[in-house]
Design a protein around this nucleic acid. Structure first.
Length: 469
RNA sequence: GGUCCCAUCGUCUAGAGGCCUAGGACGGUGCCCUCUCACGGCAUAAACCGGGGUUCGAAUCCCCGUGGGAUCACCA
């Protein structure tokens, strides 16, 4: 039997962190077993589903590289199918018509709550003989007994059916409801493994009963633990960004997020870094943990930095482009210096956003000095050194890291000073501050023209400081 | 509240009764490297929720307690 898994988001928002991980695990499991991964959009709630949201989810999936094999299927286009099965269940007497209105139901629920009873449909239409000429909903007859299943992740879970109520599978307007659509779809799409968040555990007994009513064999269930925020509450907006695309905009590499998500709830010994191929090869539901995990942005950052370091600068440039562009530098990606610039930033950027900010200094027309840095390093005694440096760099044949180092060293020897004495003032002259990439790699990346101009500007600044006396 | 799930360093986790003096990773701290910031290297602090069993032996199995989470719709 071919393994078939599915990811079934409802389009009422963006693809979020939790959904992405569910999709990832479904994909990994399917790929590991040489099966199919299916995408199904659960848009039965026409009022809440939006076109933008569908697009946002698709965008998020493609950005992460979570490619599906079949679909997307839309439940909104399969209403006839659901009605067909509902009709069959009605005929078999496994369902019944219910004429109670939502208002009546709501009133009874409130009354029950007030009396401290657990609100539950009383089944009053179950054996109703008349059939009023009014809209009716279709309810599923929940039988007695115990429903249990063996969850691959959580183990055996049992429910007493008495806690379940006769659920509505077709609303009075004829549209089908969630639990019914899920079962009809999973059954007709031959889904073999239902891998989803454990917030669905409570839906499972209802769905199992529906499977049985439909006469279909059960899939294997695997309920993934939830992802929590730092306060251990379910991850939500107030914990920070939860939209997958927000991470792209913050300068994360898609695989960094994938790797992070994979390790949140799943592990393979002590290994932290996984390529997609390795994840597929090593993934198994048995090594998914039972307990929920806290989303840790610090570790994501670490992984992102790791992958930035691993990625060739040439590959980074196009990904970086929109982020630099956003900061007002339109020509960065086509600047011949860009690859070298990225090289100087790779080792010190946790995100591409940070890298883009770091790149700005190479493109500025004029450098503004940090007052403290200027006061400390652009001192009158530097005028001579800067003059010499400008002259040497202007005539330097080999304007590379090693060539520059040689040039600097000869000056240091002549003046018997240490590199620090010269490097910091030059750093301030070139960047305006005291923090930057290594001085030689930076000068090489910056290029001769920009470097000389900035040194000359700094020299001007220094001499202007000297009192006319 | 009913029902269900969960419980190892701050966080992600390894751990399938003796290999545990509980390992790794992120983060923290200290040192080294060094032209600044980083990278890197080395070192270090830090956990089996509590109580009962079972067993020669329990982080691992069972029960109870406690704590956290989820879910209870003509939402999905």
């Amino acid at each position: 039997m071919t393994v078939r898994t599915r990811f079934a988001p409802s389009p009422t928002g963006y693809l979020h962190i939790g959904g992405a991980r569910t999709a990832l695990f479904n994909l990994l499991f399917a790929r590991h077993h040489g099966g199919k991964f299916i995408l199904r959009v659960e848009d039965t709630d026409v009022a809440r589903s939006t076109e933008e949201s569908i697009q946002a989810i698709l965008d998020g999936m493609s950005w992460l590289g979570l490619n599906w094999d079949e679909g997307p299927f839309f439940q909104s286009r399969r209403f006839d199918e659901y009605r067909k099965y509902a009709g069959e269940l009605l005929e078999k007497g496994l369902c019944y018509r219910c004429w109670c209105t939502p208002e009546e139901l709501e009133a009874r629920r409130e009354a029950a709550m007030k009396e401290g009873r657990t609100p539950k449909y009383d089944g009053r239409c179950r054996d109703r003989k008349d059939s009023p000429d009014k809209p009716f909903a279709v309810r599923f007859k929940v039988s007695g007994g115990v429903t249990s299943f063996n969850d691959v992740i959580k183990g055996t879970i049992s429910f007493d059916n008495s806690i379940l109520e006769d659920l509505i599978i077709l609303r009075s307007d004829g549209t089908p409801t969630y639990n019914f659509c899920v079962v009809v779809d999973d059954a007709t799409m031959d889904i073999t493994h239902v891998i989803r968040g454990d917030d669905h555990i409570n839906n499972t007994p209802k769905q199992i009963l529906l499977y049985e009513a439909l006469g279909h064999s059960l899939p294997i269930f695997a309920h993934l633990p939830m992802i929590l925020g730092s306060d251990k509450a379910r991850l939500s907006k107030r914990h920070g960004a939860t939209s997958v695309m927000a991470y792209r905009d913050m300068g994360f590499l898609p695989h960094a997020l994938i790797n992070y998500l994979a390790r949140l709830g799943w592990s393979h010994g002590d290994q932290e870094i996984f390529s997609m191929e390795e994840m597929i090869e090593k993934f198994s539901l048995e090594s998914v943990g039972k307990s929920s995990g806290v989303f840790n942005p610090e570790k994501l950052l670490w992984l992102n930095q790791h992958y930035i370091k691993e990625t060739p600068a040439e590959t980074l440039v196009p990904i970086l482009e929109p982020l630099v562009d956003e900061l007002g530098v339109k020509s960065a990606a086509t600047d011949p210096r860009i690859v070298k610039i990225v090289e100087t930033l790779k080792e010190r950027s946790k995100t591409l956003k940070e890298m883009a900010e770091g790149a700005l200094v190479y493109f500025r027309e004029k450098i503004e000095y940090d007052p403290k840095a200027a006061q400390k390093f652009l001192t009158p005694d530097m005028a001579e050194l800067f003059t010499i440096l400008i002259e040497r760099l202007g005539g330097l044949q080999d304007f590379s890291h090693s060539g520059l180092e040689t040039a600097f060293n000869s000056i240091l020897e002549e003046k018997t000073i240490k590199l620090g004495k010269l490097a910091q003032p030059v750093r301030v002259a070139l960047t305006g501050g005291t923090v930057s990439p290594g001085i030689f790699e930076m000068i090489e990346a910056m290029g001769r023209d920009t470097t000389l101009k900035r040194l000359a500007d700094a020299l001007g600044f220094i001499t202007a400081q000297v009192p006319a006396a």
